[in-house]
Design a protein around this nucleic acid. Structure first.
Length: 467
RNA sequence: UCCGAAGUAGCUCAGGGGUAGAGCAGGCGGCUGUUAACCGCCGGGUCGGGGGUUCGAAGCCCUCCUUCGGAGCCA
């Protein structure tokens, strides 16, 4: 590997014509010419395009190896980078040697053919689907966006906090959780009343996989000032849709000495930054998505980057919807949790651009969101975008202990379950705010890929954990 | 979980009571500085599983499984 050249460098022109190079990768197609040469398209994942390797019949292993190469073979080709005589590419590698490092032992049943596959089929061969154009492109986009996330926060003085995956506090309150246990499921230790004795379990109490790092990251926010989490989260909901996963990655920044307005500005700056990086750095892959997956994707990202996000009060949004004359499936009135039809109407028809809707009724929002002076609303925000609806949800957090306790109780929860979270309000409390973004949804938004299971390497969903 | 649709060759699909088809892929041959090439020949299927109806089922009925889309929940 170390001595080889990546195809991205060759195709970018970083390797001058006339230079000798070693290329290592996997074969996409082979075409023979009886004029005495074969064309082997090689892919190494470094960029969208394959490199054409020209193999002359004079190669000693031409008859024994080269003409037996099929799609999927791993090869090492050594030769000179030359200007191409053909039309499809500017440069190619004229091979002095081609070594087949790994054969495809049964080409007849090798699943990855040089043609378009359905995404459903590719999910059944998730261990091989990274060899396709679409999954390769998605993988590079995912990587680039992830790097952009870290770059955005790092450049602004945020610290990346590794919040725990396993949590024993049953207090995150964001949906069904997966249990983590070392007890014998068939025969767990029991208390006299027949209930499972969790005191005997690994952590001495019930433990689960996290559904959000927010509560933990708040504690670091109230010391480090600007922090974020970026890691896997888990939901044991039996939801089978193209927008849900049981395991997904979430980005949750948290800023101290900040209010909702600062939070909304952070969200806007954040989205614009990561999508600008994507458009700048993955032109090849985005051109592919634009051509074969979603003709609107580049236009959509460009518009988001260039448009100032509108700020709109929830009450104002409801009034606009009520006066719209539009027939909605779900009726509109103050107090409702807006459906996606409402959100899309606002962002696509009214504003025709991204909106941050703020100050939602307290009854439809979480206990930790800061109560506004009107006593009816909380300092929550949703960022809505054309073509998708809600992309970010966030809030200013309730920093006043009495108000927080009242809200916890009001929601039927118990303050003692939140003792350490409450401590943050007892010792040097400060206004702070943050938001959450589902990373896979951002990738869907950027690429237009419809099913979320195709933007994560090995999707976890109900009844799906084969790979 | 609910509603709807679909499971036939390695892949994409046609066939809808009378004994299994095409294109692509694969093998062999031809042709060409080729471009997910083109032409010819060949191999390849428990028609998702089980049960039933029938002289006869891939097809009709029942049931289960799986997948997809929508809804709910949400990120």
């Amino acid at each position: 590997m170390s001595a080889s050249t990546r195809i991205a460098e060759v195709l970018a022109g970083s390797v001058p014509v006339g230079t000798k190079a070693t290329i290592e990768g996997w074969v996409r197609t082979r075409r023979d010419s009886k004029a005495g040469l074969s064309f082997v398209a090689i892919h190494d994942g470094s960029c969208f395009d394959a490199l054409q390797v020209v193999a002359p019949a004079e190669l000693p292993n031409y008859q024994t190896d080269v003409v037996r190469i099929t799609t999927g073979c791993a090869v090492r080709a050594i030769g000179e980078i030359v200007a191409s005589q053909g039309k499809g590419q500017s440069v190619e590698l004229r091979a002095d040697s081609i070594e087949v490092v790994g054969w495809v032992d049964d080409p007849d049943t090798y699943p990855m053919q040089p043609k378009r596959h359905t995404p459903e089929f590719l999910r059944e061969v998730a261990h091989l689907r990274s060899r396709t154009n679409i999954v390769g492109a998605t993988t590079r986009v995912r990587h680039t966006l992830a790097q952009a996330v870290h770059r955005f926060f790092h450049e602004r003085g945020f610290f990346w906090i590794h919040t725990p995956i396993i949590t024993a506090s049953d207090a995150e309150g964001a949906g069904q959780m997966f249990r983590v246990s070392t007890l014998d499921a068939a025969n767990p230790p029991r208390l006299p009343d027949g209930k499972v004795d969790w005191d005997k379990d690994f952590f001495g109490k019930e433990a689960r996989l996290t559904v959000s790092g927010q509560l933990n990251v708040e504690s670091y926010c109230l010391a480090m000032s600007k922090v974020y989490t970026f890691g896997p989260t888990f939901r044991a909901e039996n939801s089978n849709t193209r927008r849900h996963l049981a395991e997904f990655w979430m980005i949750e920044p948290e800023i101290a000495f900040a209010d909702l307005a600062a939070d909304a500005q952070l969200a806007e700056d954040f989205l614009k930054f990561i999508f600008r990086v994507l458009l700048d750095e993955r032109k090849d892959d985005m051109a592919f998505f634009e051509k074969f997956v979603d003709p609107e994707c580049v236009k959509r990202l460009t518009a988001m980057i260039e448009t100032k996000f509108t700020r709109m009060d929830y009450g104002e949004a409801i009034k606009i919807l009520e006066k719209s004359g539009e027939k909605f499936e779900f009726p509109v009135k103050w107090g409702i949790d807006m459906q996606s039809e409402h959100e899309r109407y606002l962002t696509e028809k009214v504003v025709k651009g991204p909106i941050a809707v703020v100050n939602y009724p307290k009854d439809i929002k979480a206990f930790y969101m800061r109560l506004n002076d009107d006593g009816k609303t909380v300092a929550a925000m949703d960022v809505l975008a054309p073509g998708i609806g809600e992309i970010i949800g966030g809030s200013q957090r309730e920093e006043r202990l009495e108000v927080l306790d009242a809200r916890i109780t009001e929601m039927g929860l118990h303050p003692k379950d939140y003792w350490w979270y409450r401590d943050l309000r007892r010792y040097g409390t400060v206004p702070h705010a943050g938001f959450g973004l589902g990373f896979e949804r951002a990738i869907q938004y950027a690429t237009g890929i419809e099913n979320i299971r195709d933007v994560i390497p090995f999707p976890r969903a109900p009844r799906q954990a084969e790979f």
